[in-house]
Design a protein around this nucleic acid. Structure first.
Length: 445
RNA sequence: CGGGGCGUGGCGCAGCCUGGUAGCGCGACGGUUUUGGGUACCGUAGGUCGGAGGUUCGAAUCCUCUCGCCCCGACCA
């Protein structure tokens, strides 16, 4: 993309309403525009990042064997009356009446809808297990939306629902989700720690929240510093392998890691003192096995081999996709701007022409630009007639992980510069080598 | 839902207390200049001062109501 043809409304000054880094930087980098409290338009740059995250989530979900679909945002109140949640949910649920006076609502989540679909089409134990998911906009009418997309009223979320015959199957689904989430966050360059979560009125042991450590996080967390060293890395995972998923689950959930909701000082004190940490965290996902709460109240059951009927064992599992962008920026920025991890960068390489209009510089940039495009590196070419300082500042703000700088001075010696946004390190290379180096960097991203 | 704050050109703000018909910086536009980390200068355009009502000869400014937004807390993912 050539910057002169793009829509990137960069702000030089910080808008007054933004108090935390991610919100400030998203506004300044022209990623979002507030439409009303907790509701945002996603401008082209922000939308691009959102799509990158969405793509990773889709790939990892499908890798784990989960099936994509799409449910509507508007739902009928009748289904929610069946489950009993229409009255329980309170004012957070946005209620709407259509022209015929029917009660509708903007979905804050989709258990009822998916249970309705499944009960209509799944009748036998032979049809299970299944995990269906979608990525769709949700609305929760928060009392106090804040921090930009971190706590919006409208937000984009992947929510998946697992359906199993029995508890053992449901627990495998649960473990499988935990493993797939670990992979998902790792791919995004994020350290998200699974922490034992409160299961609320339904009870049970089986809920974990995934927390990204950040000073601006809304939850207080306590953990054994050992969790920070754990990663899946290149581990090959067979998501149908019950034992392997269980092992990974055990490995990652054994060290102490809890939010203030489930924190227990007595257990925490068993952690060696030098590893006992407390911090703040942003919740970017949650998995939950809740058994038959909805299948019983809504009559979703299957016929078993012996001819009896059994309510389906269910779980629901969510990743806050729009919130993740906030979390990513909180975890990856400096005073100049955003520092995108390679895997989620809206543009993978920034190309800066220091002397627009200079014949040699323009030609070198054009050639590099088409090379980068051909290599699938999705470059952003700053071809504005601006001074070097302004171009550098813009690139630093929007956070392209790599920047190729082209100017007459370097070209005289046959070189351009390749700079890492994260380290600031610069190397001089021939244009061909700079391109090759970028291809190499992104080879396995 | 309790507490606090703010609405004035696209953005950041001053003016309000002590009423006299709106100003600064950034940005935009036109020019000159400059050219490897947000260049300097000259000029131009752009505002029913969130809205409604009231007081007054006169309201951005005072009073009442209202809408919107932000922050702290409680709540929630």
């Amino acid at each position: 993309m050539r910057l002169t043809r793009y829509f990137l409304p960069i702000l030089k000054e910080t808008p007054a309403e933004a108090s935390i880094a991610s919100h400030r930087l998203m506004l300044r980098a022209g990623m979002i525009h507030q439409s009303s409290a907790g509701i945002y338009s996603w401008l082209p740059m922000g939308f691009k990042v959102l799509q990158r995250l969405e793509q990773i989530v889709h790939e990892e979900q499908q890798r784990a064997g989960h099936i994509p679909m799409l449910m509507p945002t508007l739902q009928s109140a009748d289904l929610w009356r069946e489950s009993g949640r229409y009255d329980d949910y309170g004012k957070e649920m946005l209620r709407i009446t259509d022209r015929h006076g029917r009660d509708m609502l903007y979905g804050p989540t989709n258990e009822e809808l998916i249970t309705d679909i499944v009960r209509n089409s799944i009748n036998s134990y032979k049809d299970l297990p299944k995990t269906l998911y979608h990525i769709q906009w949700k609305f929760r009418d928060e009392v106090r939306p804040r921090f930009g997309v971190m706590r919006g009223r409208e937000f984009y979320m992947k929510d998946g629902y697992s359906f199993d015959v029995d508890e053992a199957g449901a627990l495998h689904s649960y473990n499988r989700h935990l493993v797939s989430y670990l992979r998902t966050y790792e791919r995004m360059g994020l350290k998200a720690i699974p922490m034992k979560a409160d299961t609320g009125p339904i009870g049970g042991d089986h809920s974990h929240e995934f927390l990204v450590l950040a000073e601006t996080g809304e939850s207080e967390v306590f953990y054994d510093s050992r969790v920070l060293d754990m990663s899946l890395g290149d581990c090959v995972i067979d998501f149908d392998d019950v034992a392997q998923c269980q092992d990974i689950f055990d490995e990652f959930t054994t060290p102490y890691a809890r939010t203030d909701e489930t924190h227990d000082d007595a257990i925490f004190s068993d952690v060696p003192e030098n590893r006992r940490m407390s911090a703040r965290g942003i919740e970017v996902g949650q998995i939950f096995y809740f058994g038959t709460k909805y299948s019983e109240s809504m009559g979703a059951d299957v016929v078993m081999p012996d001819g009896s009927r059994k309510p389906i064992e269910m779980g629901s599992h969510g990743i806050g996709v729009s919130r993740l962008i906030g979390a990513l920026i909180e975890a990856n920025h400096d005073d100049k701007g955003i520092i995108w991890p390679e895997s989620v960068a809206p543009f993978r390489v920034g190309l800066v022409n220091l002397r627009q209009g200079d014949e040699a510089a323009d030609a070198a940039c054009d050639s590099l630009y088409s090379g980068l495009v051909k290599a699938g590196l999705d470059p952003l070419y700053d071809d504005r007639d601006e001074r070097a300082g302004a171009k550098f500042a813009s690139m630093d703000l929007i956070g392209c992980p790599w920047r190729i700088t082209v100017g007459p001075r370097g070209l005289k010696n046959g070189v351009v510069e390749l700079t890492s946004r994260r380290t600031g390190e610069t190397v001089e290379l021939s244009p061909e080598d700079a391109l090759a180096r970028c291809v190499e960097i992104y080879a396995d991203v």
